[in-house]
Design a protein around this nucleic acid. Structure first.
Length: 195
DNA sequence: TAGAGGATTGAT
DNA sequence: TCAATCCTCTAC
């Protein structure tokens, strides 16, 4: 199984990357415990629109990872509770990113069950805050390369465009008209996508 | 340095 | 429908 090359991430087309990440495998290796899943839901964010933390090229101590060259992780805390995992894309200085919203577990299910303190693998990764907990991702992953020993993305199944559902992004009402951009992508009929 | 709010979730 | 919970940003 091969890890995605840097050239996958550094393209200047964040929505295409968000679509192509569907079917790929996100894997973490935390304290020797390998866990991961197939990406089934993503959202694209770009500095060109208001839904993005880096809108209008505004760099802060929180979002500076987004301004790095594509191929690293951007992890931040939301609502004081949840770590959200993003894949940084585009070239250095162009702050685009893809939020991973849901996975289909495919590796280390027993560790994920332990982390989530549940007995069934169902729904343990069906949401951006839950999948980071299941995979052991926290803010120490911010800025990590996606070909490191601790987190990486592998080639997976190519999802034909007919199997991809496009919709509006979630939870960004403050973004005005940009909240209606069809930049959320998920695999049709997958039982693993978020609610 | 204080105050407001958020790319969510799960319980009510 | 709402609270949990704390980091981040903005304004003063």
């Amino acid at each position: 199984m091969s890890v995605l090359p840097d050239s996958f991430y550094t393209r200047n087309n964040v929505t295409q990357i968000a679509r192509q990440l569907l079917g790929k495998k996100l894997i973490t290796n935390v304290l020797g415990k390998k866990t991961g899943g197939i990406i089934v839901e993503t959202e694209a964010y770009s500095f060109r629109e208001r839904g993005c933390h880096a809108y209008d090229n505004k760099m802060t101590s929180r979002n500076k990872a987004m301004f790095e060259a594509g191929g690293i992780a951007y992890v931040y805390l939301c609502y004081g509770i949840h770590n959200l995992f993003n894949v940084v894309t585009n070239k250095q200085g162009s702050a685009d990113a893809v939020l991973v919203r849901a996975l289909q577990p495919c590796k280390g299910e027993e560790w994920m069950l332990t982390r989530m303190n549940v007995k069934s693998v169902k729904r343990i990764t069906s949401g951006p805050g839950k999948l980071t907990k299941a995979l052991g991702i926290d803010r120490s992953f911010n800025g990590k390369f996606l070909n490191s020993d601790e987190v990486w993305i592998e080639e997976g199944t190519d999802i034909p465009s007919g199997k991809i559902v496009t919709s509006c992004r979630i939870g960004i009402d403050y973004a005005g008209d940009d909240a209606f951009l069809p930049w959320r992508f998920s695999i049709k009929d997958s039982e693993w996508v978020s609610k």
